[in-house]
Design a protein around this nucleic acid. Structure first.
Length: 720
DNA sequence: ATAGGGTTAG
């Protein structure tokens, strides 16, 4: 008898260590021995086999072990429910839950947490209600789980807060910590602070401190976050990878590269730079603080055993540095080759890279791949990225189709489609959707307003723009930011209301940024207001001393006004200061390859044919009434003749790209050309003629909006 | 109970 009980006990002990070490091999042989042995079936042992298989992600085996359990108890059910919840098979988990004769606290907590993970607030809450009706005892885990499940609903969080208070559950630090976290995530820093301060020194633990650091970072309070970190060090708290990762995200949020560099050194000293969480925070920090991706890459290569999130951080870094979008897609493929399955996040980043590139063929490929991989939950963000992708690839029809087919919309979905219509100059649709949004009581965000105001600006809707701008603070509760003011200055200036635009810039509640002055400068150019242009250019230069934009603008304005000496003076100034015009660059996709053209650059292999084609085209265009507008030729010296200027114009990158497209695609096929800067005025006129002569639909996406040329007309109605 | 990745504008 003693012999036998010793065996059972040794079984228990070995099995426990197998679970702790995820030692499947030993565990499985133990299981075989157990089944064949004469040991009477023990529910306790069976349950631990279920746990083992669940921990090793062997769901089917775990279920099989459950079926072999002679008298499954609540513990057996709970173990299996946790296994299914881990695999996101919540329906099965709930079905099992329903079969438990008397679910206990752990059963409820497990299922509530599973629903919280999926963001299913309603199901979590109904379980919580059931518990209360049954009078079942709760604990801190129950509350933390329900709070997590309500993470997007401030109202519910407040209610849970007061319930926790009245029932005494707020004495659990974990409950306070999750309240703090979710108040902050919902944008209410004050309440998070109140929870943190209300805890008092003796209650706060590392989790509270780390959570509060993250909260300050999320609200761009970099100094506060750092002060808190120093306080932690001062008080002798252990600085672990949680703290380091939390502080690093703060640097990303406030784009503080020098602070980030200092912390990088700290992570190397402690060896945490090789940790996945800390490492990906470092990668993200470098990517977001404008250090380019070379630093990120170095960190990436030092991480011990990367995982999906680390890869996604790299992909997203490349995609966010827009000019590295090709590298983003390359990184996605590297990840696949390394054996990782892309998740929704990987797809969002890759699709966004396709939007940056205006590469419809690759975008479509990712669309298909995402559909095939049946991404669980959060499909909505993949679809949002796709809506933008189709729109930015000039295919508003498909963007709209997808929008209507989507099973669910959120604010980002609406922002995306509203922006799509705005960029295509279809102001009516943007405003319609916005009104629908308001009617459905969906709160617009600051980004929605940027899109709406720019939709008004692109289509000359001055009164509506003013109306919405004035509603921002009082009706929508959105404080106008620099971007909104720039839109308004653009809106007014473009409509010829220059003095009103100037008044707005002078009466802004904070000092205007470079974008505001650039908008005013653009308007001055359109209306030939030299005096105001000088002022705007000077202000702009103070903020961005290395930019070529104001020089180029002023020089061309002086030339247009036939003030040659002034134009020459500006060009000399620019030369003397060593400032160079950012080269215009256009690209077009053909047979899944991107062809890039730079003005005056003859490196494309087919450039001879392109020039010949353009020569012939110009003859036809001039016959149809095209007159080259040499004001748009940016000459470097002052002796350039008219003839030479015309040739320079003819070699602008957008004309080269369009000509290439016309030459090498099937007749009738629409073209999409993308330009890094704003389209030039002469090209805008020329492409109208080209669209009529070649009978093609030609879409040009510039840095600002879409121009869709057809039959000699542009969709912008020449209002740009 | 805390830490790493995402979509929208300009």
């Amino acid at each position: 008898m003693t012999q036998f009980s010793w065996t059972l006990q040794s079984f228990r002990q070995i099995l426990k260590s197998c679970i702790a070490n995820k030692d499947l091999l030993t565990g499985k042989s133990l299981h075989t021995i157990y089944l064949k042995s004469l040991i009477p079936s023990s529910t306790y042992l069976s349950n631990h086999f279920i746990l083992l298989y669940s921990k090793c992600n062997l769901l089917t085996t775990a279920h099989h072990a459950f079926n072999q359990t002679h008298e499954p108890n609540v513990f057996s059910f709970n173990a299996l429910i946790a296994a299914y919840a881990k695999e996101s098979l919540i329906h099965v988990a709930h079905h099992l839950f329903d079969q438990i004769p008397q679910p206990d606290l752990v059963s409820f907590n497990t299922l509530i947490n599973a629903y919280a993970d999926r963001g299913d607030t309603l199901s979590a809450l109904s379980l919580f209600g059931e518990m209360r009706e049954m009078g079942l005892v709760m604990d801190g885990f129950t509350f933390s789980g329900v709070i997590t499940a309500c993470c997007n609903h401030v109202g519910l969080i407040r209610q849970l807060h007061s319930l926790a208070f009245s029932s005494g559950f707020d004495s659990y630090v974990s409950v306070k910590n999750s309240l703090l976290t979710y108040y902050s995530k919902n944008g209410i820093l004050e309440e998070a602070e109140m929870v943190f301060n209300g805890m008092g020194e003796e209650v706060r633990d590392e989790v509270s401190w780390n959570s509060m650091i993250v909260a300050y970072g999320q609200h761009k309070r970099g100094l506060k976050a750092l002060a808190l970190y120093r306080d932690m060090v001062h008080r002798g708290f252990e600085i672990d990878m949680f703290t380091l990762a939390s502080v690093l995200t703060t640097f990303s949020c406030v784009e503080d590269l020098s602070g980030g560099l200092q912390f990088h050194a700290k992570t190397i000293k402690t060896g945490f730079n090789k940790n996945r969480h800390v490492g990906s925070s470092l990668i993200d920090m470098y990517a977001k603080c404008g250090a380019g991706m070379s630093e990120s890459r170095k960190v990436f290569e030092e991480i011990c055993g990367s995982d999906l999130v680390v890869w996604n951080t790299m992909i997203s870094g490349y995609a966010q540095n827009k000019e590295l979008s090709v590298e983003a897609l390359e990184c996605f493929r590297q990840m696949q080759r390394a054996g990782y399955w892309p998740d929704d996040c990987s797809f969002v980043c890759a699709i966004s890279a396709c939007s940056n590139l205006s590469s419809p063929s690759q975008g479509k490929q990712f669309h298909g791949l995402a559909m095939k991989s049946e991404i669980p939950s959060n499909q909505i963000s993949v679809n949002n990225a796709l809506v933008t992708m189709y729109s930015k690839c000039g295919n508003l029809q498909d963007a709209r189709k997808l929008f209507h087919r989507m099973p669910q919309h959120n604010t980002v979905t609406l922002n995306s489609i509203i922006a799509g219509y705005a960029q295509h100059g279809i102001g009516t649709e943007s405003l319609n959707l916005f009104e629908q949004m308001l009617a459905a009581s969906i709160a617009p965000t600051s980004i929605t307003l940027v899109s709406i105001l720019s939709a008004c600006a692109h289509t000359g809707r001055v009164e509506e723009g003013k109306k919405y701008f004035n509603m921002m603070k009082d009706i929508f509760g959105i404080e106008p930011e620099a971007e909104h003011y720039s839109c308004m200055i653009d809106l007014l200036g473009r409509a010829g209301k220059l003095s009103e635009a100037e008044r707005l810039i002078d009466t802004m509640p904070f000092s205007p940024g470079s974008a505001a002055w650039a908008a005013l400068l653009g308007a001055c150019r359109k209306y030939g207001n030299m005096e105001l242009a000088e002022k705007a250019a000077n202000q702009f230069l103070q903020l961005e001393p290395t930019s070529a934009v104001p020089y180029v603008m002023l020089a061309s304005m002086y030339s247009a006004a036939r003030k040659w000496e002034e134009a020459a003076r500006i060009r000399k100034l620019m030369r003397d200061r060593g400032i160079r015009k950012k080269p215009g660059c256009s690209w077009i996709e053909l047979n899944k390859r991107v062809h890039v053209f730079v003005a005056e650059d003859n490196s494309h292999p087919r450039i001879k044919e392109i020039h010949m084609y353009l020569d012939e085209m110009f003859v036809k265009m001039k016959r149809a009434g095209y007159v080259p507008d040499v004001r748009w030729a940016f000459v470097k010296d002052d002796e350039t003749g008219e003839q030479e200027k015309e040739i320079m114009l003819a070699h602008h990158s957008e004309k080269l790209a369009v000509a290439f497209g016309l030459l090498f695609t099937k007749h009738g096929e629409p073209l999409l050309v993308v330009k890094n800067l704003r389209i030039c005025g002469d090209c805008h006129n020329a492409i109208k003629f080209m669209s009529a002569i070649a009978r093609r639909k030609i879409t040009v996406r510039d840095a600002y909006r879409f121009h869709c040329f057809e039959d000699g007309r542009c969709s912008c109605g020449d209002y740009w």
